[in-house]
């Protein structure tokens, strides 16, 4: 019981050690996803020339895959690398807080 409690605490701590973008930056990222990702994936993220980014469509993809795709793009497709505008931490936050929800 104690061990389970400790593990839970550790898990919560591990999650909290994730650096988070500032509130201002989060708002900017939300806007970026809606407008600029939305240009290809649709304003509602249900897909356009690019595939759907709704949570159901992404269940089979790992976080790593999604983060790498955002930062580096996917060669051979229309998906460009966003690393000049989105940091690693921000990509993690995007996947965790926007794409999975």
């Amino acid at each position: 019981m104690i061990i389970r409690g400790l593990l839970l605490l550790l898990l919560i701590m591990a999650r909290n050690t994730y650096a988070e973008p500032s509130a201002e930056r989060q708002a900017a990222l939300r806007e970026l996803v809606q407008q600029d990702c939305g240009a290809c994936h649709g304003l509602t993220r249900k897909g356009g020339i690019g595939p759907s980014l709704l949570p159901d469509a992404l269940t089979a993809k790992t976080d790593d895959y999604l983060i790498t795709t955002i930062l580096n793009g996917r060669p051979g497709t229309a998906m460009p690398p966003w690393r000049s505008f989105i940091s690693q931490v921000e990509a993690e936050w995007l996947v965790d807080n926007l794409l999975r929800k």
Partner: peptide, 8 residues
């Protein structure tokens, strides 16, 4: 020499 295209 292709630059990234952020909108079609």
């Amino acid at each position: 020499e292709k630059l990234p295209v952020f909108k079609m």
